[in-house]
């Protein structure tokens, strides 16, 4: 379990891997669908035509930033605010992508960058969780991403057309917590004995500090980087 990724040879990108990844996403289909439908409803309420909301879900494919932009949907277009909000909310992808760089080893540049179009929290979490069990196929992330994209897009369309539930309903069923517990189970599988304790503690404290003291949406970036640096310092001090 402590073998560095480099010792495990080049990564692959296969259909079989994509299928494994898609199946790993099944537990989150319902929450992703519910959030997508909620976005469809909210977009409709904000005055977006159905096809516009669907196009956004298809091309942007990043729920939190899509919700945020609905509040900014006005004329004249607040360009700077919209693009800054989009970047801030999605900047966590930078860390997700960086962390799976070793899993793109040996893949051609276009395969690597085409795969990244589907990078998202849930399929990334599924991939690194599988990597801890020996997975070396980037298709795992791509397949999970395609599955989520299909669910997310169809949910947006359906939500805009028929839905009338609210976020309060989601809370009652506890669905908003599915993401948190999904990440928690991933974290559990990722833990490598005691060497993770200190970096993870730093990450948790830094993310909370960012929630309290930084503008909204920077906590994942702050916590991730702080924990990574703490790990690096610990690595440097190891006998």
């Amino acid at each position: 379990m402590d073998t560095p990724p480099s010792a495990r040879g080049p990564a692959t990108l296969t259909l079989a891997g994509a299928w494994r990844g898609a199946r790993a996403m099944v537990p989150v289909f319902i929450p992703v669908f519910v959030f997508g439908a909620a976005f469809g409803v909210a977009a409709h309420a904000a005055g977006l035509e159905g096809w516009v909301a669907a196009l956004m879900s298809a091309l942007v494919f990043a729920g939190a930033s899509q919700f945020a932009v609905l509040d900014l949907w006005q004329s004249p277009v607040p360009w700077v605010t919209i693009l800054l909000a989009t970047f801030a909310i999605n900047s966590r992808h930078l860390l997700l992508g960086a962390s799976i760089r070793p899993l793109t080893r040996g893949l051609s540049t276009w395969k690597r960058y085409l795969s990244m179009t589907l990078l998202s929290d849930l399929n990334w979490a599924a991939l690194i969780s599988a990597e801890a069990r020996g997975e070396r196929d980037l298709g795992y992330m791509v397949g999970g991403g395609v599955a989520m994209w299909v669910v997310w897009l169809s949910a947006t369309v359906i939500g805009g057309a028929v839905g009338d539930f609210t976020l309060a309903d989601l809370q009652r069923y506890g669905l908003d917590l599915v993401m948190a517990v999904f990440f928690a189970t991933t974290l559990f599988g990722l833990r490598r004995k005691k060497i993770d304790d200190l970096p993870w503690l730093v990450a948790g404290l830094a993310s909370l500090a960012a929630v309290w003291w930084l503008p909204a949406n920077w906590h994942v970036l702050a916590g991730g980087l702080a924990g990574g640096v703490a790990g690096l310092i610990q690595y440097g001090r190891r006998p």
Binding site: P4, S99, A203, G204, A222, G223, G224, L232
Partner: peptide
Amino acid sequence: SPRLEAFLRYLAGSVLVALVVPATVRG
């Protein structure tokens, strides 16, 4: 380098922590 790979592995775990902890506290 082994150093960079170690950093990236800590990064992955730390990002997950930073996703779970604030969501839990705010929830």
